[in-house]
Write a protein that binds this DNA or RNA. Structure first.
Length: 219
DNA sequence: CCCTGATTCGC
DNA sequence: GCGAATCAGG
């Protein structure tokens, strides 16, 4: 299976989203988790958010860092610090206080093309790798595009819903089946029928059955 | 054991 | 370039 642009896109997006290689492999279909990792590695992606092994510090220097008191301003010692007025979190049940109407969070439909699963695609030219300090997750509507409203996107994938892709990555209405899975499988019962066909020895496999992803448009 | 990602290495 | 095999940590 070839690594098409769309698939690489999906791989990047999911990888950066913190999905495990296994999940990505499942979503992409037709590839193993090793393939995903290998590709990610080749692409130069690095494993960020993953229970990987961090500290490999070869300098076990004794640097206990006993809570260095950061000089709180050059405040002369002087008198005792003013007792911080308790925030008094009045539970104010007053519903009157109309919460700021989501004026700020107005549905800001970004004009960038939305990739598979609602990912915001990045044009090669507008990469901003380090520009992700603390992305306010969940601020953006999960489905900014009406095209995929109600559809099961990558963001909706979990262990319990069918991950069978509907459409093609890159297409605006690309989504996933979304049916409850056949317990123990990534797909619903119906799609398991497609996904898990008797696997013949390679040498006997001639007619490639329709693949969900990647394969030449088979629809 | 299960999982994870990383790396190697034959293809 | 690809990915199975292998390695290594959790």
């Amino acid at each position: 299976m070839a690594w098409t642009d769309e698939r690489i896109d999906t791989l990047k997006a999911m990888w950066e989203k913190g999905m495990t290689a296994s999940q990505i492999a499942e979503a992409l279909g037709g590839v193993s988790r090793n393939a995903v990792i290998g590709k990610a590695h080749r692409l130069g992606l690095q494993s960020r958010p993953s229970p990987v092994k961090p500290n490999d510090d070869d300098t076990p220097k004794a640097a206990p860092k006993p809570a260095p008191r950061p000089p709180v301003e050059s405040k002369p010692v002087k008198a005792a610090p003013p007792p911080p007025p308790a925030p008094a979190p009045a539970p104010s049940p007053a519903p009157a206080a109309a919460p700021a109407p989501a004026a700020t969070a107005e549905l800001r439909v970004v004009l960038r093309s939305i990739g598979p699963g609602g990912f915001v695609r990045q044009s090669p030219g507008e990469q901003q790798p380090p520009a992700t300090p603390a992305p306010p997750r969940r601020l953006v509507p999960a489905r900014p595009s009406p095209e995929i409203a109600g559809k099961t996107t990558l963001l909706d994938l979990n262990d319990r819903i069918c991950k069978w892709p509907i459409g093609h990555p890159g297409e605006p209405d690309f989504h996933f089946c979304g049916q409850p899975v056949n317990p123990g499988f990534p797909y619903c019962v119906a799609h398991c029928g497609h996904a898990y066909q008797a696997q013949l020895p390679r040498r006997d496999r001639r007619p490639p059955p329709p693949l969900p992803f990647g394969g030449p448009r088979s629809r």
